[in-house]
Simulated assay, not measured.
Amino acid sequence: MGLEEKLNIEEISMNIIAHSGDARSLAFEALRKCREGKIEESESLMEKAEKASVEAHHSQTNLLVSEAQGKKTTISVLLIHAQDHLMNSMLAIDLIKEIIKLEKQRKEEK
């Protein structure tokens, strides 16, 4: 593996980590707003969380496309860590979206 390829994988990994971290943080901020009864704010934050998650997915997709084209990706601890961040942020977004929906339903039933 050449230096350029190594740097590219590291850059992609860091992009995944950064955007996933933003997505997770925004999702948990949305959960806090929901708990405070600020549903519209929480939904707005969730939209931002999903946009950040999409950015992380774009970086991951670049790796997948490259590998599909026959270019082998060297697996590193950093890349594994990035994938872990992405999976955790996706799970947080999914769960928090459901919690917000439940809270909206609960308020509408009152």
Score class of each variant (00 low, 15 high):
residue 1 M to I: 14
residue 2 G to Y: 14
residue 3 L to P: 03
residue 4 E to V: 14
residue 6 K to Q: 15
residue 7 L to V: 10
residue 7 L to G: 05
residue 9 I to S: 03
residue 9 I to C: 03
residue 9 I to A: 03
residue 9 I to Y: 06
residue 11 E to C: 14
residue 13 S to E: 07
residue 14 M to L: 13
residue 15 N to A: 11
residue 17 I to H: 05
residue 17 I to W: 03
residue 19 H to K: 12
residue 21 G to E: 02
residue 24 R to F: 01
residue 24 R to K: 12
residue 25 S to H: 02
residue 25 S to K: 06
residue 27 A to M: 06
residue 29 E to A: 08
residue 29 E to S: 08
residue 29 E to T: 08
residue 30 A to V: 00
residue 31 L to W: 09
residue 32 R to M: 15
residue 34 C to P: 04
residue 35 R to Y: 12
residue 36 E to N: 13
residue 36 E to F: 10
residue 36 E to I: 04
residue 37 G to Y: 11
residue 38 K to I: 06
residue 38 K to C: 05
residue 41 E to M: 01
residue 42 S to N: 01
residue 43 E to F: 00
residue 44 S to A: 13
residue 47 E to P: 10
residue 49 A to Q: 07
residue 52 A to Q: 04
residue 56 A to S: 08
residue 56 A to I: 04
residue 61 T to P: 01
residue 66 S to F: 09
residue 67 E to M: 07
residue 71 K to T: 13
residue 71 K to H: 13
residue 73 T to L: 13
residue 74 T to L: 09
residue 75 I to F: 03
residue 76 S to M: 09
residue 76 S to Q: 12
residue 77 V to M: 13
residue 78 L to P: 05
residue 80 I to S: 15
residue 82 A to D: 03
residue 83 Q to Y: 04
residue 83 Q to D: 09
residue 84 D to Q: 04
residue 84 D to L: 03
residue 85 H to R: 03
residue 89 S to Q: 08
residue 92 A to F: 10
residue 96 I to T: 10
residue 97 K to V: 00
residue 98 E to P: 08
residue 100 I to Q: 02
residue 100 I to F: 01
residue 103 E to K: 10
residue 108 E to I: 10
residue 109 E to F: 04
residue 110 K to R: 08
residue 110 K to G: 08
